[in-house]
Design a binder for these strands. Sequence first.
DNA 1: GTCTATACCGTGATAGAC
DNA 2: GTCTATCACGGTATAGAC
Lengths: 229, 229
Amino acid sequence: MDTARQLDTTYKAQPPMEASKPDTATRILDVAERLFVEHGFEATSLRMITQQAEVNLAAVNYHFGSKDALFESVFMRRLTPLIAACLAELDGMEAQFGTLTPEQLVMAFIRPCLALSKDPSRGGALFVRLLSRTLVENHRLLRETLSQQYSVFVQRFGKAFHRALPALGQEDLAWRMHFAFSVMFNAFAGNDVLKIFVRSQIVSARDPDMIVKHLVPFVVAGLTSPPLR
Amino acid sequence: MDTARQLDTTYKAQPPMEASKPDTATRILDVAERLFVEHGFEATSLRMITQQAEVNLAAVNYHFGSKDALFESVFMRRLTPLIAACLAELDGMEAQFGTLTPEQLVMAFIRPCLALSKDPSRGGALFVRLLSRTLVENHRLLRETLSQQYSVFVQRFGKAFHRALPALGQEDLAWRMHFAFSVMFNAFAGNDVLKIFVRSQIVSARDPDMIVKHLVPFVVAGLTSPPLR
DNA sequence: GTCTATACCGTGATAGAC
DNA sequence: GTCTATCACGGTATAGAC
C-alpha cells in the first residue's frame, strides 16, 4: 500500500475519511495508558489492549518485550517530561528569588503536576492518578528504572530543601522530605484513605486546585515545625 | 483414620511426634498471610499456598470461596482487633484526660499499630506493612467490606479531632485528617517514596520507634497549623 | 523489519465422585 | 470435607508470512 501511494501520488496521498493512524507502537501505548488507568495493571490483559489498538497480540512483545516493559514505557513517556518540568521550575524560581521558602519549593514540585493533570493530551488528571498511585505503591516494575534515572530529582530538591530549612539536621530533613512527598503523591493519587471507611463528600472532591489549597499549608507546616531535640 | 482413633483410643489419641496441626482453614490462613506479605497478592498463587499448607488446591475455594475472599479473611483477622484496640485506646485516654490534644489523638492511633508491629504472633511488622500498603493502595477487594464495617472508626476519631481542633471548619478538618492518615499509613507501609529515586539509608531505617519519633511532630504540625482564610 | 497465527504452560475456578 | 479432572483465560515464545 505504501509503495502504491509512492508511485501514484495523485491517488489520495492520505486516505481522506480514515483518520491518520499513529504507528503500531504508539497505538499500543495510547490504548494501554487508558486501560491501565481505568482498570489497573493486573486487570488489564494484553488481549484487551491489542484488540482495542487493532494490532496483533504478539505485537506487544515484539515492540516492548513484555507486559511489564510496556507498563514501564507507558509510564516513562509521561514521567520523564514531568521530572524535567519540575527541575526547570525549580531552576527558574531560584534564578528569580535566590534561596526559596519551603512553600515556594513545594510549589515548584506541585505546579508542573497541576499543569499535567489539566492537559488531556498528556494523559490529564487520570494519568496523574496512575503516576502517583504507582509511586505510592512502590511498584516492583519501576524501582530499578526510577532509582537509576531520577536520582537527580531528589538530589536537586534535597539541596534546595537543605538551603530552605538550614536549622534541620540531615536526618530530620530526610524524614520530613519523605513525609512531605508521601502526602503529596497520595493526594494526587486520589486514593482517599479515609473514604475507604466512610464516604466523605468533602475530601472526595477531585478538583486539583482544591487539593492544593489544603495540601500546601499542611505540608509546609510539617516541614517548618521546630527541629527535633 | 478418625474413626479408627475413636474406636481404639488406646492407640495414640494424639500422634505424639506430630505437632498438633491447626485445622485446614487456619493452616491456609497462616500460610497465605506469610506469602501475601512476602510476594504480594497477585504474585502469590493458590498452588503455592495449598502446597505449603499441605492441603488440596480446591480446599481454598471450599473454605473461603475465592482467592479474593481468602485475602479478605487474612486481612480482617488482623485488622478487626487493631481497630478495636485503637478505639479502646481512644476511650481510655479520653476517660483519663478529657478532651485530648492533637498529639494524644495521633498517639491513640499509633500506639496500637506499634504494638501490633512488635507482636510476631499476630503477623508483626511485616503484617503492618501489608495492612498499610493495602489501605494506601485502596485495594478493590477491601473497599466495600471496610466502608461497611469500620465507619465507626472514622466517625469516632472524627469527633475526637473536632473537639481537639475546634478552630477548624468541617471541610478544613476533613482534609487534614485525610492528609494525616495518608502520611501515617504510608510511613507504616514502609514504601519509601523517595527511596524509589535515591537510596537514603536514613529514612529506610525500619525501626518503628524511629519512624514515630519523626512522624508524630510532622503530623501534629500539619494538623495544628492556622485555619485557612 | 514488521506483523501474524498458533502453541505452551501456569493461573483461578468448578463440577462431581468419594 | 476432601480430592481429581477439567475448564477458560492469562502472559509468553516462536516459526513463518509479507
